[in-house]
Amino acid sequence: MSELAFDLQNIFYHYNSEVAALSDVSFSVARGARVAILGANGSGKSTLLRILDGLYFPERGQINVLGAPLTEEQLQDEEFAFRFRQRVALVFQNPDVQLFNPTVFDEIAFGPLQMRWPKAQIRERVEETLALFEITHLKNRSPHRLSGGEKKRVALASVLILDPEVLLMDEPTAALDPKSQSMVIDFLAGWAGSGKTIVTTTHDLSTVGEIADHCLIFQNGQLMAQGAPATILGDNGLLERTNLIHVHRHAHDGQGIHSHPHQHIGHAHPH
């Protein structure tokens, strides 16, 4: 069994525009690792996660997931696809995309139903999952009428019911209030303990230390640097160059105008 969850070599991807969303990206993620992908808006984070989840396919380059090459042809095969979709889960950045079923119950049952689990087993698992995420009281509600924090829970529950080995989360804490943020972070911490692989994207540096042991920094579709959170977060020059922090000129009492690096923690960037 391969020790790597993901292994990417020289991945290129671009949308219909000329600008490359990802260019010449190579890295690997060990099984059981917690990795954060950092980058400013438009640096290619969401695109990368979709490639890791087999939703987009690179134009050039090779990607291996859990020891096997991942290609469009491979995913045509139903057995391979079901196994892959069960093992690798993605929570989308936009909850309006993630939640498309009439009720919360149906939302959580969607994955297992598509994989043709026995219906009695599905009902049982959905109830367990609802209880686990403390959303049993929401089960007959329409997912889109929930609050941001409730939507996040439902989104998580809807993919984790499949008990995946790898969880990909796009901006898990964006647009959440502090209480919901810490709920998500606590959850990720607990879930990782069980030997699962987690890849998250974020531009919120304040949460990185809690959700990752390894960081990848992206800018304009390129991997600029990687390393332990402490090292990366201590490198102001790097963070400034990749637009993760910026320099403000302003006055402090009695010191005149000066400038120092500044990060805007907790402010969701307009999207």
Binding site: D53, L55, E78, A81, Q86, V97, D106, Q114, K119
Partner: peptide, 24 residues
Amino acid sequence: QLSSDIYLAMLARGYRGEVYTLDD
């Protein structure tokens, strides 16, 4: 954009062209 993203979200959870539902 939204509808093509929803399609991806369905694919990501095992959708393969036919939706299965619980009849309760």
